[in-house]
Computed example of a mutant assay.
Amino acid sequence: MPADSPVALCEGHLAAASDWADRTYGVPDLLPSPCRLCGSPLGVQFRSGWICAVCEWRHGDVPDDELAPPRVDVVYYLRYGDRVKIGTTSNPRQRFAAIWHEEVLAFERGDRMLEHRRHMQFEVDRFASTEWFRMSDALRAHIDALAAGSDDPWRLHARWISEANAVR
Rank of each mutant, 00 (worst) to 15 (best):
T24A: 13
V62K: 03
C35S: 06
C55G: 03
D152I: 07
R118A: 04
I143L: 07
E102Y: 04
A97C: 06
L146G: 11
V124E: 15
I86A: 06
E123M: 15
Y25K: 04
S40I: 01
R155P: 01
P34D: 00
A98D: 14
R117Y: 12
E66K: 13
I86Q: 06
W20L: 15
F96H: 08
R134K: 14
A164P: 05
P153A: 06
L139N: 02
H116R: 15
W57K: 04
W50M: 01
V62S: 02
D152M: 07
A16T: 09
Y76N: 08
G81F: 02
W100G: 10
I86T: 07
C35K: 02
Q94W: 08
R118D: 05
G110L: 01
V167L: 14
P28Y: 08
K85F: 10
G39P: 04
V167Q: 15
A8P: 02
K85L: 12
G149K: 10
R117L: 15
A141L: 10
R23M: 06
D151P: 02
D19P: 01
I99Y: 07
R23Y: 02
T130K: 12
W50E: 00
A3E: 14
W160G: 03
M113A: 15
D111V: 01
R95V: 04
L146F: 10
W50D: 00
P2Y: 01
I143R: 02
G87W: 07
R23V: 00
D64K: 00
R134Q: 11
P32W: 07
H142V: 00
M113K: 13
G149I: 09
P63G: 04
S5Y: 06
A147D: 08
L105A: 08
E131Y: 01
R118N: 11
V124H: 14
V54A: 13
M135T: 12
G49V: 06
G110K: 05
Y25D: 08
R71I: 14
F96S: 03
D73F: 10
V75M: 06
S162Q: 03
L146K: 11
L37V: 11
S40W: 00
A98R: 15
S136Y: 04
P6S: 09
W100M: 12
I99N: 11
